[in-house]
């Protein structure tokens, strides 16, 4: 079934069609959510929430954007909400990272992942969105421009600034962790 028929069937409450929609889009949603939150369990939870929202609001979907663009927007909003809710949890990560630094063991991937996502999530929101879609989903500037409703050149500039800022933030972390 193509997206148009799929949406029509889901609107009618066709369970099989909804199953197909989940199969078609779950990888995309999990990949995007993981890019934002950096934790596979959380990415799965977000994915479930995204599908519930898709199901509930499918009647408000208008064909003026593609289904994937619409789903990306829902996923971004859900992921950023999740990051905001988990901010307190991130304070906990800071503590764990401190412990690691004090023992001066080599940094493990799990810690590195936390630091990386802390740095990405501290970028200005639009830079964070553009960077994540480009880096984790390999979307083109044009696709990101459609999702973010911005011009291609502004997306290009957001990604450029995101990469420079990320290097600065990781440098700050590296510099201080060596003291």
């Amino acid at each position: 079934m193509n997206d148009h028929d799929l949406i029509k069937a889901v609107k009618k409450g066709d369970e099989k069609a909804f199953h197909e929609l989940v199969e078609n889009y779950q990888q995309m949603i999990i990949g995007t959510a993981l890019g934002f939150v950096g934790n596979l369990d959380d990415a799965h939870d977000i994915t479930q929430d995204v599908f519930i929202e898709i199901y509930r609001s499918i009647n408000s979907f208008r064909a003026d954007s593609s289904l994937s663009t619409w789903i990306y927007r829902i996923t971004i909003t859900r992921s950023l909400n999740h990051i905001r809710r988990e901010k307190r949890h991130k304070d906990q990560i800071v503590v764990e990272t401190d412990i690691r630094e004090e023992t001066s063991d080599p940094l493990e991937d799990a810690d590195r992942k936390k630091i990386l996502h802390l740095a990405i999530s501290s970028l200005p929101k639009n830079q964070q969105i553009a960077f994540t879609l480009h880096n984790y989903e390999d979307l083109s500037y044009k696709q990101i421009a459609q999702i973010m409703q911005r011009s291609i050149s502004s997306v290009e500039s957001l990604i450029f600034r995101a990469r420079k800022n990320l290097q600065k933030k990781l440098w700050e972390w590296y510099k201080n962790s060596r003291v």
């Binding site: 800071v94 929101k125 700050e172 972390w173």
Partner: peptide
Amino acid sequence: DHPEISSLVNELNHEPLEQMLFNL
């Protein structure tokens, strides 16, 4: 104790989600 990481955390406060959604 660790300004380098706390600066990352604190910056989250300065990016209101509503503004981002508005921009989107």
